Computed example of a mutant assay.
Amino acid sequence: MKRINNKNLKPLIITLVILCVAAVLSLGENSVIPSAVNAFTNGLFSVTANATASADTASYDDLKTENEKLKKENAELREQLADYYDVKQENEKLWKYYDLKKQNPSYKIQPATVIMRDANDDFYSFTLDIGTSSGVAVNNPVITENGLVGWVCKADLTTCKVKTILSPDTKAGAVDKQSNDSGIISGSASLCDDNLTSLTKIEENNKIKAGDMIVTSGTGGVYPGNLIIGWVKEIKYNSYDTSRYAIVEPYEDIRKITSAAVITDFDTKGEVKGTQ
Rank of each mutant, 00 (worst) to 15 (best):
I4R: 02
N6E: 09
K7M: 08
N8Y: 11
L9Y: 05
L12Y: 13
I14Y: 14
T15K: 11
S35N: 10
A39N: 14
F45S: 13
F45P: 07
S46G: 11
A53H: 10
A55C: 04
A55P: 00
D56T: 10
D56I: 09
A58L: 00
S59M: 12
Y60P: 00
T65M: 09
E66A: 13
E68Y: 13
E73A: 14
N74S: 08
A75Y: 06
Q80W: 06
Q80E: 15
Q80I: 07
L81G: 04
D83C: 01
Y84L: 14
K88C: 03
L94S: 01
Y98P: 00
K101Q: 07
K102Y: 15
Q103R: 08
N104P: 03
N104A: 12
P105H: 13
A112R: 03
A119C: 04
N120G: 12
D121C: 00
L128K: 00
V136R: 01
N139L: 06
T144R: 02
E145S: 10
N146I: 00
W151M: 03
A155F: 05
V162P: 00
K163A: 06
L166V: 07
G173W: 02
D176H: 10
D176F: 02
S182H: 02
I185T: 01
A189S: 08
L191K: 08
C192I: 00
D193V: 04
L196F: 10
S198I: 09
G218I: 12
G218R: 08
G221S: 07
D241Q: 05
S243V: 01
Y251I: 06
E252G: 02
D253H: 07
K256G: 00
I257G: 00
T258S: 10
T268H: 04
K273S: 02
G274I: 05
Q276H: 04
Q276V: 11
Q276A: 06
